[in-house]
Write a protein that binds this DNA or RNA. Structure first.
Lengths: 331, 331
DNA sequence: TATCAATTTGGAACCGGTTCCTAAAGTGCC
DNA sequence: GGCACTTTAGGAACCGGTTCCAAATTGATA
């Protein structure tokens, strides 16, 4: 690999001239030609490190994610990547495997790598997070969680939870179960549940019960089975599509027909939910769009522009086959 | 942020001494203490660029992937990331969105970023690829595709295809359809089909027909429907799990029972295939393990160690509910 | 105590770019 | 043709580390 000094020597100019040529300074047409030819011949590409060393900045955005094998994560990453590419940035992905300590560690590592900004697909924000954000002095954007001290982009989980709860109630369901996850996850564990609870609270004739499982499909299936043993809901609202898929499986195993015996809804809008039998009514979150917005925002922050402290992404309820009307109750 | 010169000044030593302290050269106990204290107080972290500039190398492995929203990709990335972390390397992900030109472009960009090595989850290898590999002078490992001139790790698609074909034939099926993808994808489009064809060729009483669709679930469902119109297979072997999921959907829409009327198999071992109704018999490829192996291999290459030019990853057939025995034919 | 080897330390050069400053060349106007 | 002003080009310093080399210190041995 050759350096700028080689190019300068071959073209018979000073390296500052070559640098100016590359960065658009004032260079005569004649000199431009000479340099152009040498660069074309040698296939010269500037050393990104030497550039970054001086500039004290890269065009890399670090993205920290809790897990890779999640539809939500993948789709969000696609959006981030797409938009960053348009803005001439790169995406460096760091997976934490849902380990909070590794999350903190990654923040510092990315800072050391001098990424221009960090997008954190967060599940919860601790004091250690805030301390890290303060120390690294690099723009940070949270996705999926909100904190007053940090720029955030959140899926409007509570409103979405409210909407799906409302919908189920409108379909005449009175015995409603909610299968969620632990409250350590603010967005999924707390806000979605809160929204559903709020919808339930609007009515005084609903028997709603709240259960908990993990993000894992198989575990959700097992939990749903025991749920069906202790309670016979006419509708089961699940906090994620994966949980809903497990619940549908559990229903089959219990010989419950979906939606005739029990209606089931998901949350996320994963592609496979359209292909299931029955296809799943679910809350679709526009992850790719959210990712694109996140990318736009972090780049603005990097460039010193201002953005709103808090942004909401969009959602819509996709009506499919897994929810039935209870005609024994008026709609 | 402070530099090594600051630390040296505060500790009252030369910066070469601090550098030696950090990199394990000979430093007296007394000096070590002094430097240690200053570093602890300042929270000093070396500038990775300055280090890389001199070392002409990073501890970053670039991974180029065709798409992010694929189970196979996610799982492989998890394995790569996991193992790289153990080996003290980082993973930089570049998504090409199945655009071959962008793939080439990414190879050069990563080289410019001075990544230590590149793992390419490839779908096909063109002359442009080979040219790029030659020019960048950085170790490259292909995953999922094989080429004689490049180190490769392949899922043994042909053998796996042969195995699933053999299995279906053993279950007594005579009218077999294969729903694959275009031949531009060597692993999925060519090798899996080739394996199945080979299994069919071992017998002379099989009517096997081969169809094509894309990797997209919905498109696969549409293709499967028209397939059922033109041919009535007792078994449908699909080239990916996503295609199989679409096929199952199509079967329902055609009022065909799975597996009573038509047996369906997948390829990949995606988690959701266990939760479907009926659960899907599929070829499970151990993507995470493959990713781990890929990471180990690329690091060995980076360190100048030798590895086999070609490595095969493992697979196994997961027997579930979507395949029936045809008792009208002897097994 | 003198000599020599081993350990520790500091200074300077270097990695490959960018940028500032100054000098030289080119241009326009009177 | 001379003067002022603008372009263009070169040289040197700098970014923040690592490494080589030589000097200084320590310790062991005779």
């Amino acid at each position: 690999m050759n350096t700028i000094a080689d190019i300068a020597r071959l073209a018979g100019v000073a390296k500052s001239t070559v640098s100016r040529y590359l960065n658009g300074g004032s260079v005569s047409e004649e000199t431009k030609k000479k340099i152009e030819i040498v660069i074309a011949e040698t296939g010269y590409a500037p050393n990104a490190f030497a550039q970054s060393l001086k500039a004290k900045k890269t065009n890399i955005i670090g993205t920290i994610i809790p897990r890779l094998d999640s539809y939500a994560t993948s789709r969000t990453l696609i959006g981030i990547d797409e938009r960053l590419r348009e803005l001439n940035f790169h995406m460096l992905v760091s997976n934490t495997n849902q380990d909070l300590e590794r999350e903190i560690e990654n923040i510092y590592t990315l800072a050391k790598q001098k990424v221009a900004g960090i997008i954190l697909l967060a599940t919860q924000i601790t004091d250690d997070h805030l301390k890290a954000f303060k120390q690294i002095n690099i723009p940070v954007l949270l996705v999926g969680q909100q904190h007053d001290d940090v720029y955030s982009l959140v899926h409007d989980d509570e409103t979405a939870g409210y909407a799906i709860g409302k919908y189920i109630i409108q379909r005449g369901h009175k015995n409603i179960a909610f299968l969620g996850v632990g409250e350590h996850d603010i967005a999924v564990g707390v806000n979605r549940k809160k929204g559903v609870k709020k919808a339930v609270a609007d009515h005084d004739d609903i028997d709603a019960r709240f259960f908990e499982t993990t993000f894992n499909m198989s575990e959700a299936a097992i939990r749903a089975q025991s749920l069906f043993d202790e309670f016979s809901p006419s509708a089961l609202v699940c906090a994620t599509d994966n949980i809903a898929i497990g619940a549908v499986k559990a229903a089959y195993q219990k010989n419950l027909r979906v939606p005739e015996d029990v209606s089931i809804t998901g949350f996320g809008g994963y592609e496979v939910t359209a292909m299931m039998h029955p296809s799943l009514t679910t809350v679709q979150i526009h992850f790719v769009d959210a990712g694109r917005t996140a990318a736009s925002h972090i780049v603005k922050l990097v460039n010193g522009e201002d953005i709103p402290k808090l942004t909401y992404s969009n959602f819509e309820i996709i009506l499919r086959e897994s929810v039935d009307i209870r005609t024994d109750h008026p709609i």
